[in-house]
Design a protein around this nucleic acid. Structure first.
Lengths: 241, 241
DNA sequence: CCAAAAGTGTTAAAGTTACACCCATGT
DNA sequence: ACATGGGTGTAACTTTAACACTTTTGG
């Protein structure tokens, strides 16, 4: 940091928030958890749906804020999360609909908001669709995103690009989104949605399904009107290096 | 963003800064540009060396701030840069030496500082060792980093890890740090320092040097006491996809 | 002729791609 | 018997890793 040697003034009305891109997989589609105020008039003039997030508290570590938000929304702990990137363009909070919402939600004068975006990979469970702090949280397919407030659509798209790179760099991250027992089809669908195209079934079986950390169980699907699929589990201890 | 529904107060004394990890290569070593106040007593009690950076101006886009800092320090434009990650732990500005410096440098009360770190890859030239705004900027080998203020050493180490991934994901980024004409040895040294280990010379020649975007010139080193090395140039138009 | 760095191929192993058929189950 | 998805192998090709000697130049 260096002193301001121009006539421009240092930004003292900048606030910092944390927004979380919480991704999950329901066995078919990749989904993102979005929040909407539960008492909201559905015809209000501002955009309801947002990434879950909030302003930083005094003296709060942004990592802790993200962790809190994720824990509250999912109702469970120890989900994988990591910081993605900060978004701080002065324009990001200039949309009139968003300004209206901001004034309504936060009863203090707010200048520009720099947000630190996090992403988290979680298992979708029953507790994950819940209301907290006056907000409903609902899962939406990332392939059919509704209109979102601020630059939140942009943030999600950027996170999805990053996830594509990460899925080859650290493939075991995907299991953060799968249930303890999963079928080959589920894992393949997850892969395909992240990389954005289909994969050959036989190559997938050879390349992915017989990694040492994917261990077959002696359990099969029940009551399906076709040959039952085997269940597998993920064994983190077998991930090398 | 969501309203504060606890008794904790929103952080209104948080400031946002931008710090730049500007990396260059002198033909032998990977280097980072660090700044020191030029009129400083070398025995002052606070740590002199920092990443170049400053607080955000009112209504300034962080990307623009980073671009300005890089342009001012290098004296040239259009260097590659991109945002890396935000660092916002409340502890990062708590070291007594750093607090002393902050109070001295910025004559206003400053609470916590969240910094947005950028990294930039530049060609080292004569104009790059320069004084600006009361600061000297000097290149340091990343392998022999001196003690730095705040969490700046940590930020540099994290950027270097990222660069390792990027060098395989987008290998053409390396040419941002090389002169227009370079030898195979220079490019190999750059690779080796980024990935952290040596590469076999013959494999390097085969795998890297005959990529279509590396084109040999009809120019050779002059006045060297051994067989003269050929010069190559980088042709961006031959980079595919 | 010595020192120093440049330049250059082959082979084996591993990984990736393309491609098609039979199996088990429920209706 | 049919519809649905489950499960499996092989061959061509590409990529990577390991490995050593001859050439050029200046001193």
């Amino acid at each position: 940091m260096q002193p301001d040697n121009t006539t421009r003034s240092i930004s003292f009305d900048t606030n910092v928030s944390v927004d979380c891109v919480i991704l999950g997989f329901d066995g078919e589609s990749l989904k993102v958890l979005l929040s909407r105020r539960s008492d909201e008039d559905p015809h209000a003039q501002y955009t309801h749906l947002k990434l879950p997030g909030r302003l930083l508290y005094a003296n709060e570590d942004p990592d802790d804020a993200a962790s809190d938000i994720i824990n509250q929304l999912t109702g469970t702990r120890n989900h994988f999360f990591q910081q993605f990137r900060a978004f701080g363009s002065p324009d990001r909070t200039k949309n009139p609909k968003d300004v209206l919402w901001l004034e309504n939600a936060i009863k203090q004068k707010i200048g520009r908001i720099v947000t630190i975006a996090y992403f988290s990979l979680v298992r979708i469970n029953n507790r994950t669709h819940r209301t907290f702090a006056g907000y409903d949280a609902t899962w939406y397919k990332v392939s059919e995103l509704p209109e979102l407030a601020f630059d939140h659509s942009h943030i999600i798209r950027e996170v999805l690009k990053e996830l594509e790179d990460l899925s080859t760099l650290r493939p075991h991250l995907l299991f953060e989104m799968l249930p303890a027992k999963f079928t080959a089809l589920q894992l393949r669908h997850l892969h395909e949605q992240i990389i954005g195209h289909d994969m050959d079934v036989r190559n997938f079986a050879k390349l992915i399904m017989n990694k040492p950390y994917i261990v077959p169980l002696d359990e099969w699907e029940q009551n399906v009107s076709h040959r039952a699929a085997r269940y597998y589990k993920f064994q983190p201890s077998k991930v090398k290096k």
